[in-house]
Design a protein around this nucleic acid. Sequence first.
DNA 1: CCACGGCATTCAAATTTGATATAGCGCATC
DNA 2: GATGCGCTATATCAAATTTGAATGCCGTGG
Lengths: 275, 275
Amino acid sequence: MEHCGRLFCTPLTDRPSNQIGAAMDSSRLPANARLLPCELCPLRPRPALREFSPEELAFVKSFKVDELRVAAGTNFLRERTQSEHLYTVLSGWAFRYKLLDDGRRQILNYAIPADMLGLQGAIMKEMEHSVDALTPMALCVFPRTRLWDLYSRFPSLAFDITWLAAREEQHIDENLLSLGRRSALERLAYLLLHLFARAEEVGLTQNRSVQFPFTQQHLADSLGMSLVHTNRTVQRLLATKIVRWNNRVFEVVDRDELAVLAGDEAQPRVPRPFI
Amino acid sequence: MEHCGRLFCTPLTDRPSNQIGAAMDSSRLPANARLLPCELCPLRPRPALREFSPEELAFVKSFKVDELRVAAGTNFLRERTQSEHLYTVLSGWAFRYKLLDDGRRQILNYAIPADMLGLQGAIMKEMEHSVDALTPMALCVFPRTRLWDLYSRFPSLAFDITWLAAREEQHIDENLLSLGRRSALERLAYLLLHLFARAEEVGLTQNRSVQFPFTQQHLADSLGMSLVHTNRTVQRLLATKIVRWNNRVFEVVDRDELAVLAGDEAQPRVPRPFI
DNA sequence: CCACGGCATTCAAATTTGATATAGCGCATC
DNA sequence: GATGCGCTATATCAAATTTGAATGCCGTGG
């Protein structure tokens, strides 16, 4: 299973039990009852997220028509498809990726709680990437049919959606800079630091450590390197003692040093929208 | 000037006469008179662009407060800056890029007529990339202060802006796939084919050829490769006879073959918004 | 005429890959 | 409770890709 960047390495998509249909069935029966109401959303109070007016909150609550729970490995948004829904991650990790015909895979970005998924599929003709769950997830489900309603009645929320799209673009821009111009070690340091910072924003960290759910193969497919080289680079990073990483627990020992390695000017964060 | 990916190679940013201030002065004096009215916009009639309702057209016309002309090489949007304006390219080419501290440069994408620039700077705290003109350009200038007005009164245009942001993201996603997982030759073929296709959309092509304004150094900085390797790869591509490229004129001899090389499933285009 | 920017080419050196092998762990099954 | 399987992590090594430095050529514009 060493074919770096090949789909074959992690053929989760092949398991019929992990298809979207099956996943939805399991959460469909009680329909509306078990929905977490938006006013009790555990994410909303986070300081990193902007507050809502009561009207906005009421609208979003009505906009949310379902809550989807998927198992780790589920492929719940598919390339070349127009998805009927827009999602916000409530809990769990996912990753966006693209495939080449021969199975080479490039991971574009990771999604964590408070991130929106499926906007492309809702707004354009079709998605040009797929999304897989990396852990069990809970997702708020919004129907694309009411997106127009949102744009008409709540320009503030429309603005937020554009903001989120622009932010996602910034993330990929950074990533493109990494792949194009950073060395393997810088690239790795940058990715890990940024995932850590984003996880921190939504309260996924304790002290200086996070539970990272991905394997080195995911890392390799994110960094545009082979598994072998990724492994060596991880070893090299660990040898610096700047970070620790055992089992799936990642710990930042010296954040400043890591930032230097990553060639990253830590930018001050402002409260971000979240729908 | 061989330091691949270094700013020093094309130190246009250093010429004081090319700064934004100077550029704006030269087009400031007659203020409003020489503005091309939106109803006469040469781009609007293009089949690739979606039509406007009369109301939309009237609003956009009032939204456009100026027309900026910049010389080739002008750096008119700057990283770490919040721009006061939003631009649409009327004519000419530009490129978006990011720099690392030591001058390594990654070109993120190119902008051609009908593309929007500066959205990040208008919507978020600040831009995280810069934009330079590659040729002399004309740009429609929209004030960010009225963006909120647009979102409140014209949800359809707000939707278009989100659409454009999502599309830009798709382009970068593709690029990320290239840098991460395509070989040097595939990468080059993909970039050239896609620039050709985009140019075609807005009528920049004649038969099977375009005037490409960039140098091999730009190409190298787009593809995340060194100048040397880029040059060799260009030679290799030319040797296949699939394309021709003399002076700055690029000609696609066998488009299907080029698409195969690029590993690209040519997707049917739908009319896109344009503001 | 000369300087300079862009393109082409060479070569040794560094980075990165692919193939392959081994070991540990968790999990389902017998 | 032992066994086997799949997935993950680690390691090694020869081969391929990619780089950096250097050099020459050519056309354009002061």
